[in-house]
Design a protein around this nucleic acid. Structure first.
Lengths: 239, 239
DNA sequence: GAGTGGTCTAGACCACGGT
DNA sequence: CCGTGGTCTAGACCACTCA
């Protein structure tokens, strides 16, 4: 059982996706939503605020909540979504080849260093995977997961979805991530795994993922073929 | 005069930046904020919600609002911020060379096409600029602004800051933008303006900016030297 | 003037953490 | 047990749009 506001959010979002509420039209007014769902106005406003934040609607004072053009998820990432979730939404055939699995191994991962402290080796599970999209290897993912948070990772979880394992089976509450995108020349491992020529470029996404209790527990380096990389974002201006 | 919640947000944000509230410590509890600022709880919660959304704090039930590591703005963009605003925050010496200015000119800009309609030429002001950072030309910005929204743009506004002109002088209410990042080979214009060799790669950020009334009025293509490009993002997991 | 969204309030009940 | 944040409510007042 979710929140009322989350239920309203989901319902409105689905109806926008299914064009029950069409692009360029207005959602029911806030007072109408109160009656439609049997909720108070602030509860409805919370749902509308989320829709606005995620680019579904633009709220216009005196008029209403206008449905605006909404970009669906695109490869590889927007927000914080697992690879498997994305592949399902995109209806893409995808394979997931684990080519290296070490656990436990002590590695000096900068992302896990205490503030201002030394970068000391910490016990992690290190997983390297190649993502094969429509038959073509496009992405290398290197994951480093703290064994102090996740002591053991079954091989099948790595081959399927780490997020599904963390959240579904372990009940971890994944809360937020910081991400950094840069462009770098392909290294020999990139070229070997993805079959690239010398001089090829990669889009590299490095991210640190944290739990609801603010524990940083996963560091990921995701290396994409430059010609297949696309990142889409919706942002609101803050004043 | 801003909102109460915005005032509280700004105050807390500044105190976090100035380490009045240090990393790894907790903000005053919600009830304490009520007394500190003379506000109701929901008003304080709105401010805290914004801080959480922007990566300043992590709210932990039963404990409080924990100050977490917060990435300052980084070049070129995170969220929707003007180039000049960024340069000021980064304390970087920056120049802004307008090398092409055409107004009005009729161009077929896809971003302004009506839904499902033809891409017809529309009257825009077309501005091309080179951003020179610490003495080195790193970025080409190509802006196309609808003349139906902004009839006239003074040259000095292009040389200074378009956002400052739109918002400060025209009173436009810039609300949101969609952005797309890709990697592409440098074209001859890139190589000429930035002094690059053949075979160089560019990070290309294409964005459409809209006003509070949902009018898309500006299309920007921002082309960055690959080796200078960095994009940072903070994202929360949505369930 | 009627309807819309924007903000704020005072209070209620719940779930979780730590003592 | 008490303090924390999470959710929801009913009502108030304001600013804006449009007929």
């Amino acid at each position: 059982m979710l929140n009322k506001s989350a239920l309203v959010y989901d319902d409105l979002m689905q109806k926008i996706d299914q064009e029950v509420y069409e692009l360029g039209t207005y959602l029911p007014s806030e007072n109408q939503l109160c009656q439609l769902y049997g909720i108070s106005r602030e509860t409805g406003r919370k749902a509308l605020g989320l829709l606005a934040e995620n680019g579904y609607i633009q709220k216009i004072r005196g008029k209403g909540s206008l449905v605006i053009e909404h970009r669906q998820y695109e490869f590889p990432v927007s927000g914080i979504v697992s690879y498997k979730e994305l592949a399902q939404k995109m209806h893409v055939t995808t394979e997931n080849l684990v080519y290296s699995f070490e656990s436990p191994v002590a590695l000096p991962v900068q992302a896990f260093a205490s503030l201002g402290g030394e970068v000391k080796p910490v016990p992690v599970t290190a997983i390297k995977r190649v993502r094969i999209i429509d038959g073509e290897p496009d992405i290398i993912d290197k994951d480093y997961i703290l064994t102090s948070v996740v002591p053991d990772i079954p091989k099948r979880a790595a081959a399927d979805s780490l997020y599904a394992y963390f959240e579904g089976e372990l009940g971890l509450d994944i809360a937020y991530a910081t991400k950094e995108i840069t462009m770098e020349p392909a290294n020999s491992e990139d070229r070997e795994q993805l079959g690239l020529d010398k001089g090829a470029y990669m889009a590299v996404v490095r991210s640190v993922t944290s739990l609801a209790d603010a524990t940083a527990f996963q560091y990921t380096e995701s290396r994409h073929r430059a010609d297949k990389f696309r990142f889409r974002d919706f942002a609101r201006r803050t004043k």
